[in-house]
């Protein structure tokens, strides 16, 4: 597993922020799921996933984000992604997932959407 990979949860009022760092692939996607699903279950408001420090993402991690989005919607919540790396945004574009997710370049912008 990527030694730089880390997931951290921060709570501020109704806002839950999950900060991810490192490479998101078939090895680390399960850990991401383990953090995101409980975060969604505990949250009473939007869940922000900060992917600013993510350097790689593949289909398995995208699958986790899609599952988390569905979980949010079932609970009347909202999943918001924070991405500013053109290489990462490109993956969302070529898979058509830019239509599914709310994507902002900063956490501040994601919080006020």
């Amino acid at each position: 597993m990527d030694e730089d990979f880390a997931v951290e949860e921060r709570n501020e009022g109704d806002l839950v922020q999950v900060v991810v760092r490192g490479e998101l692939d078939v090895a680390t996607a399960p850990t991401l799921r383990e953090h995101l699903h409980p975060a969604v279950d505990r949250s009473s408001g939007p869940v922000i996933v900060d992917l600013l420090a993510v350097t790689f993402i593949d289909s398995t991690a995208l699958g986790v984000l899609i599952g988390t989005q569905e979980r949010c919607r079932e609970r009347g919540s909202d999943l918001r992604l924070v991405i500013d790396d053109a290489r990462i945004i490109k993956i969302f574009e070529i898979t058509g997932l830019v239509e599914l997710f709310s994507i902002s370049p900063t956490v501040a912008e994601a919080a006020i959407r």
Binding site: D58, S59, L62, G63, V64, I66, I91, I94, G96
Partner: peptide, 18 residues
């Protein structure tokens, strides 16, 4: 085995594009 959210389809879309 572990597919839950159309990951295979996502993989194929990525390969098609790249």
């Amino acid at each position: 085995g572990s597919e839950e959210h159309g990951e295979r389809e996502l993989s194929l879309r990525i390969l098609d594009a790249l």
